Amino acid sequence: MVSTPSLHLSPTSGSFSFQPKQIKLCDKRVVLGIEIPDDPAHTSSSSNGWFTVVRTRNSTGISPLPVSTSHAEVWLSGSKVYIRDLDSPFGTFVNGVKIKTDTLLQQGDVLSLGSPVQRNSQTPAYITDDHLKPIIAKVVLAIGLSW
């Protein structure tokens, strides 16, 4: 039996907090980005590319500031997984290198959506240090496995 090709993303040190994801890669591109509140098509789950907006005490949604709503996209081509930045302001990085073209993802790569934002005198007090962090994830690929 052949499993459905998938991309597993688990948070690493320094990442904005998120639940691990197992994203099925079939015949379409999957967008990685921040969920859009009150939009069912852009609601976070452990099986899609949307990352959760954190609710604060006053119910304001705070997301990782370096991550866009449509930040990057991943897709399967043959037995290879590729990623492309979608012109995000804070960039997409694979193993610390900013990607500028379609980039091959490999087992064990570290993917970063955005780069850390530095706190300054203009940063509102309700923004925590965690909200200044990018999404940083270890990549595990399950492509063509059989059992």
Rank of each mutant, 00 (worst) to 15 (best):
V97L: 12
L86D: 03
S146C: 07
D38E: 11
K24Q: 14
N48Q: 14
E73Q: 15
V81G: 06
R119A: 00
H71K: 09
A137Q: 12
I143K: 12
I34G: 01
P124D: 08
S17C: 08
T123C: 01
L132R: 00
I127L: 14
D39L: 04
S6C: 15
V140P: 00
N120D: 15
I36D: 03
S70W: 03
Q19M: 10
V140Y: 05
P89F: 04
A142Y: 12
I99D: 10
W75K: 11
V97R: 14
F90S: 08
I36K: 06
P11Y: 09
P124R: 11
D85H: 06
I136C: 10
H131Q: 10
V31A: 13
K28M: 09
K138C: 04
G49A: 13
G91L: 02
R55P: 00
S6K: 15
V74F: 12
A41I: 08
W147Q: 07
D39K: 07
A72G: 13
Q106L: 09
T56W: 03
S3D: 15
S77W: 06
D130I: 02
V81H: 06
K133T: 01
L25P: 11
L65Q: 03
L111H: 04
Q19T: 12
L105P: 08
K100V: 03
S15F: 05
I99H: 11
T52M: 08
S70G: 11
I135W: 10
S121C: 06
F16N: 04
Q19P: 01
F18L: 08
K24G: 03
L111E: 04
T60S: 10
S88F: 03
F16M: 04
N120W: 02
S115M: 12
Q22P: 00
G114Q: 00
P11A: 11
G61T: 07
V117F: 01
E73L: 06
G114W: 00
W75N: 08
P20M: 12
L132P: 01
T56Q: 14
P64A: 00
